[in-house]
Structure formats: C-alpha cells, structure tokens
Design a binder for these strands. Structure first.
Lengths: 230, 230
DNA sequence: CGACGGCTTGATGATCATCAAATAGGGTGG
DNA sequence: CCACCCTATTTGATGATCATCAAGCCGTCG
C-alpha cells in the first residue's frame, strides 16, 4: 500500500547500515526538514534521489483549482525521487520532522552501471513501488469510505505491529487532511468513518492522533483486500 | 496516464527494431493471444517480462466480491510483468488480438548486469510507469466522472493523434466495462458521460466504439490536468 | 429474421461532499 | 501554572453525484 523499497522497513535508526550509504561513490549528506517543508516540486531538476532515514514524506499533485491527491507516504528505508527524464513529476513535503539521505542522481546512475547489484536494487525499489501503487488503485477506484479507512489503518498497523500481536497502538504521523487526500475523501468523511470504526469496536482513539487497533482480524476483514484472481 | 516505457510509442509494426529484441541473449519468441485471453495471473511465477508488440493488454485486480480495478492499459512498446520478487502481482488479459514479445526474466536480469544500458532502460521503463500511475491517482481520487472520461479520451486521442491536428478520430479498443473499471466508474456512468460530451459538441461517436474528437482544446480543458504546484 | 450481448437511457436511492457549527487539544503569553 | 486562543477534529444538516435497478435499443452474428 505505501511506497516500499522492499529493502529494509526497519532502517529507522540505522542510517549507516543502509544499502544506499555510499552507493554514489562518496558518503552522502544527510538532510533535515521540518514539518510541511518541501523537498522538491514538480518540474524541478531531479538531481538527487533521496532515502528517507527518519520520519515520513508525502508525495502529491495539485490540480489547478486546489484539489490535492497524495500519491503515497514514504517511510524510513523508502527511496524517493526516481525520475525517467531528469525532472521530478510530483511535489513532496515533510510530515513532521524528517531526515533524508540525498544521493546525487548522476553518480548513482554511474555506480549502477558499474555495480550490477546497485542497478538491480534500484529496479527492485521501483517495481516494489509499482506493486504498492496497484493496490492503491483498487482502493481509490473501487473501495467505499469504510474500506478505504480500514485499509489505511490496517496497513499502518502492520507497519508498526509487533509481529502477531492482536492489538497494536501507534501514532498517526499525518493529519486528517493528509489522510483524506491520500484516500480520495474529505476530512469530514475520514473523521466520521474513524468514529464509526471506533464505535464498532475495531479501534480505539486515546487521542485524535493515536490509534489502538483492537482487532487486526476484523480490521483486515473490513479492509477487504482479499483478491480473487481468475 | 497510460503505462509507458518512454521507449518508442510507435513500435507497433516494428517488432524487430525494438530495443528489447535479443536483450536476453537470444532471439525472443513472439506470443499471440486472442480477445479476453489471459497472459498471467496474480501469484504466478514471474518468469517472463513481456513487451507489447501489437494490440492492447489490461492489467487488473479483482476483489473478493467481484469488483474489478484495471490498473492500466499497455500499448505497443510498453513493458509488462516486471516484478520485485519473482511473482506477478496483477492479472492481465488481452483487449482484442495481441502480439507480445516474451523475454525470460532470468536472462534479462543477467543481461542487465552485463550491459548497463539495458539495466538503465529497464529502470527508465519502471519509473516512467510510476509517473503515469501518479497521474492516474489524481484521476481516481480527485476527479469527477466528467473529468475522468474527458481525461481518458484525451489521453487516447493524444496517442492516436497526428500531431497538431485539431480533430482526431480513433477506435476504442476497450469496452465500456473496461473503461469503467479503469476510471473507477460504472458502465452506465461512462455511457451517460460520453453522451453528454457528445451533446456538448466536444466529441462525436460515429458508432459506439469510434470516437471523433471535435475539439482537443476543450476536451483537454475539461480533463483539467493543469497542475498547480507550490 | 431472430436472438444475443453490449450500449444507452430512465428512475430511484445511497454514499459521500458541502456547508455550518461546536468541541477539543495543544501551544503561548500573562 | 493557568487562562486563552488558534487550529484540528468532530458532529450535524443538506444536497449533488454517481451507483443501482430496470427497460429498451442497436448492431452483430448465426
């Protein structure tokens, strides 16, 4: 569901141990951004690829009349800013404080040409993102509000879950507005839907930005991600 | 909007001139499929990557209750079936008769490791698809039916347009049902919306599967793809 | 010519957006 | 430390868009 590099979901505090550290030939600089600060905009020269080291980054587009669609949230370990043509095609901003490793694109590409495993990893990151985006198509195009919100919370819970535990508590890094723009809903609908899930007993909200999943099983069932292929 | 390899949109009848021909070390076999025939399913071993040589391929997911979301349509020159983990993550089927070049994944990866330009092209294909998918997120999450259908027709018209011509006529390769499942709508809404665009004079329909765009300008305006980044 | 499937059109209703207001929570200044 | 304010969130009322249910139409093919 979220952007994933398939690499290491737990790289949060392991900046040095990252696969990408030094892949461009030299040590990479670490970037710090505050909440709402932008990393790059659509149309900018895509001179860098970024690895999220800490925090969450949102990638989004804005229509002429102000409607916003958030394409995805990037978590620690995720790779950001790959471009087919030297220009960025989305805007990005920090959700809370973030730390990023910036990797010069030109050097990275040169390294990829010399070290096949780097090129392969890049391709793996890109195709992992493709797969995640396909799931999000299903959510945006075919799921109702209840399913959208349940899918979102379930995916977040999985990311934060101690494996196998029946209940999970985590902090929502993003606002209702950002959730809404990711799910293709309004903040009111997101809020109402969360309330209904709470009343139904699937989750609890100690406060508006903390979610406690009471039943991963039921939440997953409402999310409805079973795929019936044929 | 559609999947694009950034390679060559006009490779329709140029099977031999394709970048991918022989990239796995040997000549590749050409596959022929009929309308509605499947290429692969979610969960299958992803032993091949495919290049569309002729016709259109749809990639889709199905929810447990039968709801379908088409992720994208793949046209001649597009690359299909890249996987991060050796399994396909979507279902695919032919829209009409198609011809495909099948490329053994393992060999392709080995070639990519030896020939940097092949690895780079693969990455370019993947990232091009990422960009196209971002646009589709905006469509699914934030556009109304009118904008969705206009966007779709406009993108198809661009693909088939003689450059700069004010009007374009082309044949819709896919059914209303497939359009609906791509745009996150129902066939009724697609049909009604097309009718309204016709009555408004933006398009004409000599028959239900042929579209004549009367005003690319107006169609583009309704599609509303202007992005206001900030 | 008739039947089938895909498309169109119509009538109705549910879901979700919009507009509006109240509440809560976090941060700041006194 | 407390009161206040500002903003995010929640809740409520209403309405528009689009899905659903239901016929009818049209082109195609046997």
């Amino acid at each position: 569901m979220f952007a994933q590099t398939a690499a290491h979901a737990d790289a949060t505090n392991a900046a040095d141990r990252s696969f990408w550290n030094g892949t461009s030939g030299t040590a990479h600089s670490i970037l710090n951004l505050d909440h709402t600060e932008s990393l790059f905009f659509e149309g900018d020269e895509a001179d860098f690829v970024y690895e999220v080291v800490e925090g969450v980054v949102a990638s989004y587009s804005i229509l002429a009349d102000g409607r916003r669609q958030i394409h995805g949230f990037f978590f620690p370990g995720d790779l950001l800013g790959l471009s087919p043509d030297g220009q960025y095609h989305a805007n990005t901003c920090a959700i809370g404080k973030i730390r990023l490793r910036s990797i010069p694109r030109a050097k990275l590409m040169r390294t990829a040409a010399e070290r096949p495993e780097v090129g392969a990893k890049l391709l793996e990151c890109a195709t992992s993102q493709l797969v995640g985006m396909q799931n999000h198509f299903v959510l945006l195009g075919r799921k109702c509000a209840r399913e959208k919100v349940a899918s979102f919370l379930h995916a977040l819970a999985l990311r934060y879950a101690a494996k196998g535990s029946p209940t999970v508590t985590f902090r929502l890094p993003m606002s209702r507005s950002e959730i809404a723009d990711y799910l293709g809903l309004t903040i009111e609908t997101v809020s109402r839907t969360i309330t209904k899930l709470r009343i139904a007993g699937l989750i609890d909200l100690p406060n508006s930005s903390t979610v406690e999943v009471r039943s991963m099983r039921k939440l997953e069932a409402v999310a409805g991600d079973d795929t019936a292929d044929f």
